[in-house]
Amino acid sequence: MPIVVDREERRAEVVSVAFDLVAEKGIEALTFREIAAANGCSTSIVSHYFRNKNELLFKVYQVANARAGERLQEAHAAGRPLLECFDAILPVGEASRRNWRVWLAFWSRAHLEPAYLEERRRAAEGSLALYRAMLAERLGRPERDPQMQAAARRLIAAVAGIGLEACFAPDDWTVERMHEVLAAQLRDIGLAEGG
């Protein structure tokens, strides 16, 4: 009797391994051979799920965006203070640090390739909507309030800037410093420290 393989599960495993390899070694080092070896399968299995390296890489980029959004939504749904919620995005834990390494590996592509630019825009719009909803809920204001849109834009810029600086200067941008700077932004928006 043949072994039944869940196609989507196997495809997700390949993407997960590729995600980890990009986080560890970058885009250029990623090969189907390396993915197959890390996944314990043949290169033909990898190529069965992805036509080429570019298709797989694009999926890795999409997964990085999705994972970050899911972690943030989970933290928010659990009722954690906003400052703690943003630990899901900021490079304070291993999962979020890996996400930042993957994002950094891909951002030049977003500048040069239309599909990556569109994915970057889509992810940014989703983040902006989530930030706006989180702020509106915490401040007791309507989401459509123009001030909530402006506050969400300030917050997304602050989180991105803090995260980027922390990636390049982790000794200077400790968790405490990231929290301190983000807490100041939250206070400027009108939230008590920690949100």
Rank of each mutant, 00 (worst) to 15 (best):
E165P: 01
A157I: 04
L117T: 10
I156G: 10
D145I: 04
A110T: 14
F168D: 01
A133L: 07
E113G: 01
P114E: 15
P114S: 12
E165W: 09
E119L: 00
W107I: 14
E137A: 13
L164C: 08
A123S: 15
A124D: 11
A105D: 05
A124F: 04
A169Q: 14
F106H: 09
W173G: 01
A136T: 10
H179R: 15
E176H: 05
L112S: 14
L128R: 10
V175A: 13
L117F: 12
A158W: 03
A152H: 02
L128M: 09
E165Y: 08
R144P: 01
H111N: 05
C167P: 03
E119C: 00
A133D: 10
R122D: 12
G126M: 02
L182H: 00
A110E: 13
S127K: 12
L130K: 08
E176R: 07
E125L: 14
M178F: 05
H111A: 13
L139F: 09
A166R: 12
R141S: 09
A158S: 15
R138Q: 09
D172F: 15
D145F: 03
M178L: 08
L130G: 03
L182D: 00
R141V: 05
P142I: 07
M178Q: 15
G161S: 11
R138E: 10
R132Q: 15
Y131C: 09
Y131I: 04
A105L: 05
E143I: 08
L164F: 12
R154L: 15
E118G: 01
L139I: 10
